[in-house]
């Protein structure tokens, strides 16, 4: 795992095999085009026994089972879920799941992430994959500049610790200026678009190499059952 996070199978063809340590990758596209699922694929594909995964779910829909389905036999001690949908009420701990009362509680989210990391680190992890699904929900609760600042600190943390960050952003819910400003925080952008014929395509930009061509998405081999 020294040369990065194996994400083989998450992306079409041989486009991207691995993402270097410290990568912050955002998935952006219209609503309902498979961004959440792609994020889960990137968090789970090629998951090494000695890694950990910590996902912030702003609507409470990401669950431990999502990882158990993608990574058969995954040790639950290596999974952390932070539910900030507010649907769980206040903060409590239930196995690998923690919660804060609202997506707008950025300090609460940060404290819970720190606590969860402490718990994961007791399992002696070599690297952590962080998920944030989705930035769009944060933008419904907070203004662009506050979300921007939070993402700056969060991505800096992922970078400093050699983690992998995977984020989703629904672009049609926000104005293009705001979307561009937010995207500026990420070193890798995975963009999903719909063609006039209604097919979906994916392009990967950043990570130090030239943009990939637009590729059909999702690719038949690894859609979620």
């Amino acid at each position: 795992m020294t040369d990065g996070y194996d994400v083989r199978g998450a992306l079409p063809g041989d486009a991207v095999d691995a993402l270097p340590r410290g990568t912050n990758a955002v998935i952006v596209g219209p609503a309902m085009t498979g961004k959440r699922d792609l994020a889960l694929q990137l968090l789970a594909a090629g998951f090494d026994d000695d890694e950990g995964v910590l996902t912030i779910t702003t609507d409470g829909t990401v669950d431990v089972q999502d990882f158990e389905r993608h990574v058969p036999g995954i040790d639950p001690d290596r999974i952390g879920i932070l539910d900030c949908s507010g649907k769980d009420g206040g903060s409590h701990r239930n196995g690998v799941r923690r919660s804060v009362s609202s997506p707008g509680d950025l300090t609460g989210i940060s404290i819970s992430v720190a606590k969860q990391l402490k718990a994961l680190e007791t399992a002696d992890v070599s690297g952590i994959r962080y998920g944030l699904v989705s930035i769009s929900t944060l933008l419904q609760f907070l203004d662009v500049q506050t979300v921007f600042k939070f993402l700056h600190v969060f991505t800096a943390r992922v970078e400093d610790t050699g983690g992998l960050g995977v984020y989703t952003l629904s672009e049609d819910a926000h104005d293009p200026q705001a979307v561009n400003t937010i995207l500026g925080q990420f070193d890798t952008v995975l963009r999903i678009r719909e063609t006039d014929a209604g097919d979906r395509e994916l392009q990967v930009r950043g990570g130090g190499s030239a943009p990939t061509p637009w590729m059909p998405f999702p690719y038949p081999s690894n859609t979620t059952p």
Binding site: S91, H92, V100, S101, T107, S110, I111, A114, F150
Partner: peptide, 16 residues
């Protein structure tokens, strides 16, 4: 956590 507190204030979530 300190940086988050400085930038975003105290947590809203009571238990934290």
């Amino acid at each position: 956590v300190d940086v988050a507190r400085d930038l975003f204030g105290e947590p809203e979530t009571e238990e934290l």
